[in-house]
Amino acid sequence: MNKKIFTATNWNAVEDMVDKLTYEKLTSQFWLSTRMPVSKDKQDWRKLSELEKRLVEKVFGGLTLLDTLQSRNGIEALRKNVRTDLEIDVLNNIQFMETEHARSYSNIFSTLNTNQEIRDIFEWIEFHETLQTKANIIDDIYENGTDLQIKVASVFLESFLFYSGFYTPLYYLGKSKLMNVAEVIKLIIRDESVHGTYIGYKFSLGFKELPQQEQEELKMWIYQLLYQLYENECRYTEYLYDEIGWTEDVKIFLKYNANKALMNLRLDPLFEDSAEDVNPIVLNGLSTSTTNHDFFSAVGNGYLMSVVETMNDDDYNY
């Protein structure tokens, strides 16, 4: 039998300081869904109309599917083409938190919904066409794409496709409703912000190494992919929000976050929409600081939560 030589992770020999600092940032943000006081929102939940309840259920169902896809297929695809040893450890952390994100939605369901309602949500996930379409587009790239295409798909999932679902809890938070549920979402958004920025950074390193012609070809593919996802996301948004009347506002929010995804890839924005175009109620919900304290042995999520923000290039200047 040929013996292998196994190596140990050496955190004192860091190849890329971004790996170490990202890992430290993610561990400093660690949280668990079971520590979030979602049950305090039961009164708000009872006051929602049946239309609003079904909307919340569907957007969280869709988010559960995407988090499951990322934790099981996305991270495995990214692991195949790491540039450094510590990148694997960062991806391990991201994989765990994506699993925790998916679990957090089930925790919300078990708190607010009946068993039959939960079964209906997960049945809807399996058979809704536009939701399954975006999962299939991303997963096909995870299975068959190049290293850089896989990173693009991951960033688009983390930084863009989640946001049609995030709109609803952020809107309610801006209206001072379902505030504990929304703070779970803000914790998730904070994680996804780091995930998208980190993978985008790794993409940029590989992109810079390509010849000019290959860069142009890849950029063309990226913008075509984004527009394909955006068109499908518009249909998904229309299905979710037409009846409640929020569709056009959500589409603006989508374009705003599509541009942020491109920024994570260090590419130019596709849409003209900016923060000034987004519904101010949602932006207010996105930027509101935490309010819950002393719900778990005198530990509140205020010590964990800061204002949700995207890491920028300056965060990577060492």
Rank of each mutant, 00 (worst) to 15 (best):
N2V: 13
I5R: 03
T7G: 05
T7F: 14
N10C: 06
W11I: 10
W11Y: 13
V14D: 02
D19T: 09
T22R: 08
Y23R: 06
E24A: 13
P37Y: 10
K40I: 00
K42T: 05
R46H: 10
E50R: 12
K53M: 04
E57K: 10
E57Q: 12
G61H: 00
G62Q: 08
L63S: 07
T64A: 12
T68Y: 02
Q70F: 04
S71R: 08
E76R: 02
L78E: 04
R83A: 09
D85Q: 15
D89A: 07
N92Q: 08
N93W: 14
I94K: 01
I94W: 09
E98L: 06
E100D: 11
R103M: 05
S104P: 01
Y105E: 00
F109Y: 06
T111V: 05
Q116E: 10
I118C: 06
I118T: 15
R119P: 00
D120W: 00
D120C: 02
W124S: 01
I125H: 01
E126W: 13
F127I: 12
E129W: 04
T133Y: 15
K134S: 00
A135F: 07
I138K: 01
I141A: 11
I141M: 11
N144S: 11
G145S: 11
T146P: 01
T146R: 08
T146C: 02
T146I: 01
I150M: 06
I150W: 00
V155D: 01
L157S: 10
L157D: 02
E158Y: 05
E158K: 07
S159K: 06
G165R: 01
G165E: 07
T168N: 09
Y171D: 05
K175L: 07
M179G: 09
V181N: 13
K186T: 06
K186L: 12
K186Y: 00
L187K: 01
I188L: 07
R190T: 14
S193C: 15
H195A: 03
G196F: 11
T197Y: 02
T197K: 08
T197C: 10
Y198T: 09
Y198F: 15
I199K: 04
I199G: 00
I199D: 00
F203S: 07
F203G: 04
S204Q: 14
L205I: 14
G206K: 09
E209A: 14
Q212L: 13
E216R: 12
E217Q: 15
W221D: 09
I222C: 04
I222T: 06
Q224Y: 06
L225C: 03
Y227G: 07
E231S: 13
E233F: 06
R235I: 08
Y236M: 13
Y239S: 11
G245F: 12
K251Q: 08
L254H: 03
K255D: 03
N257G: 06
A261V: 03
L262G: 03
R266I: 01
D268S: 10
P269R: 07
L270C: 12
L270V: 11
D273P: 02
A275Q: 14
A275L: 13
E276I: 11
D277N: 15
D277V: 08
P280K: 09
I281Q: 10
V282T: 11
S289I: 07
T291N: 13
F295G: 02
F296K: 03
S297M: 12
A298V: 01
V299G: 04
V299D: 13
V299L: 13
G300M: 11
M305G: 15
S306T: 15
T310L: 14
T310F: 15
M311D: 03
Y318P: 02
